[in-house]
Amino acid sequence: MGDVLRIEARRSLLLRLSPLIALAHVAIMLSQVSSWRGVWPQASAAVLSPLIFTAPALAGLTALEVSRRSTRWAAPRPPWAAPLLGVQVVAAGVVVACGCVAAVVVNLAAGAPQGLLWPGYVVLALCVAAEAVACGHLLGRVPGPLWFAPVTSVMLVFLRIVLTLPGSDLPPAGRLTRVILSGPPEISIAVSGVLGALGETVLVLGAALAVPWLVGRLAARRSGSTYPLSPAGRRGAVLTAAAALVLALPTVLPGTVMTTDRVPTTTVCTQTRIDVCVWPEQAVYLPELTALAQRADAVGQVYGLTGTSRLTASGIPGGIRTVIAGEGSWFVASSLAGELVFSVVTDPACVPSDEADPVAAERFWGAYF
């Protein structure tokens, strides 16, 4: 078996092209590096998000490779004797591994707080990549023109990912969501979500192995070129299918979600008059936020403001919520400006309205921003 795997590894088109797909995967990650650099959960999601594009590429190349070989429905080989699929899954894992290495290197260089990639995101990435390869392998066995399996695989995998993406204004809680575009520290991947993804992957891989074998055996039996399965063989097949279904149950259980809300046990703050508090995973932003808060304090001193207030990142209770984005804290600056303005303008009636006095309202909001 080891010799067969080595031969398949040398012949595999997908394995030879996997460095190019990995390069594209890392390039997509680096194109958005400012949104995740230095924050481990965001970097973990950054490993997962490029699979919107690279997973369909993996599926298409897998289908093309299988279609080019004479491994359609015909040969009734045992489903466990599938070294080609094993090599293709390894190639998909290489793409995810390169993304993980890139995220770790960038975060360590950026001085990220102590930690590492969150395993839930990495497991989801491996599941998505393995499913894409399995889908391409299965469709590559379907008879038809050479273009049919690759094009169909790319479309199906792309639609599977895109149609279950979380909405921009909703948390990624759907049990069929697999690719999560952002990993804010206030959420974590639920264990039930990881189990559901693993169960779905087991089903798809099992189908890629078993369906061609079953169809091949059926065709061979009809032509009289093979013997029926023995009772022990039938029992083994039934037990294997039952085990796969049990593992896949979390994908269909109602109430299974992909993410859960975290409860902060500690925070890090700027220790300024208008205190800005963030998650420990966002500590890399603290110097920039401290500088912003100090500038706000200096402006407040001009107007004799001495009262304290608190801004908190999403998910941290207490204070006024603000958005802690990546490099460039426009939202935090806007929140600080709001605190200053409404420390001076304490009566809401003093805020000019657009309807009553549009000129004064324009001047007011211009000064505000």
Rank of each mutant, 00 (worst) to 15 (best):
T256C: 03
S225K: 02
C350V: 10
G193S: 08
V341E: 07
S223T: 15
G183T: 01
P150N: 14
N107Y: 01
S31W: 10
V90P: 05
I320C: 02
S18K: 00
V162Q: 15
R10H: 10
V157I: 09
A46K: 02
W118R: 10
P50S: 05
L205I: 13
L253W: 11
P264G: 14
A220F: 04
A220C: 10
L84W: 04
L126W: 09
Q42C: 03
S188C: 03
L205T: 15
I28P: 02
I161V: 08
R221S: 07
I316M: 07
S335P: 10
V89G: 05
A125N: 14
D297W: 01
A129P: 12
S34W: 09
A207W: 02
T259D: 00
L30D: 07
L195H: 13
R141E: 03
P19T: 01
L245T: 12
L239G: 09
G111W: 13
R16L: 00
P113T: 14
G224T: 04
P83L: 05
L84M: 07
V94F: 03
A91R: 06
A45R: 01
L181V: 04
A22V: 01
T312S: 11
Q271I: 01
V341T: 09
P228R: 05
R68A: 15
G236S: 09
M29Q: 09
R69T: 09
V89C: 08
A190W: 00
A74Q: 08
S70G: 08
L218S: 14
D3C: 01
V302L: 15
D297H: 02
L247R: 02
A283R: 14
P348F: 00
Q42K: 09
T265V: 14
A57D: 01
G140M: 08
G2S: 01
P287V: 07
G196K: 11
A360N: 11
A129Q: 11
G199D: 08
V238G: 06
L289Q: 01
S353C: 00
P264Q: 11
W147C: 02
I324A: 06
V39C: 13
L163M: 04
E8S: 02
A298V: 15
L138S: 11
G236V: 15
V191N: 12
Q301A: 15
L116W: 10
V87C: 04
L340Y: 00
I187V: 13
P184D: 04
L239P: 05
V344C: 06
A27Y: 02
L20K: 00
R234F: 14
A360F: 07
S225Q: 03
A81I: 04
L214C: 14
R273W: 01
T346D: 07
A244P: 03
G307F: 09
V123M: 11
A291L: 14
S44Q: 06
V202L: 00
D347G: 13
A130R: 08
V96N: 13
T152Q: 13
T290A: 10
H25C: 05
P76F: 02
P76L: 04
W147S: 13
L195D: 15
I316D: 09
A237D: 11
A360R: 12
V345N: 00
Q42M: 13
H25P: 03
P143W: 00
S35D: 13
D354E: 13
P119W: 12
G338R: 14
A244N: 02
L181M: 07
L13V: 14
V33H: 10
V252W: 14
V33C: 08
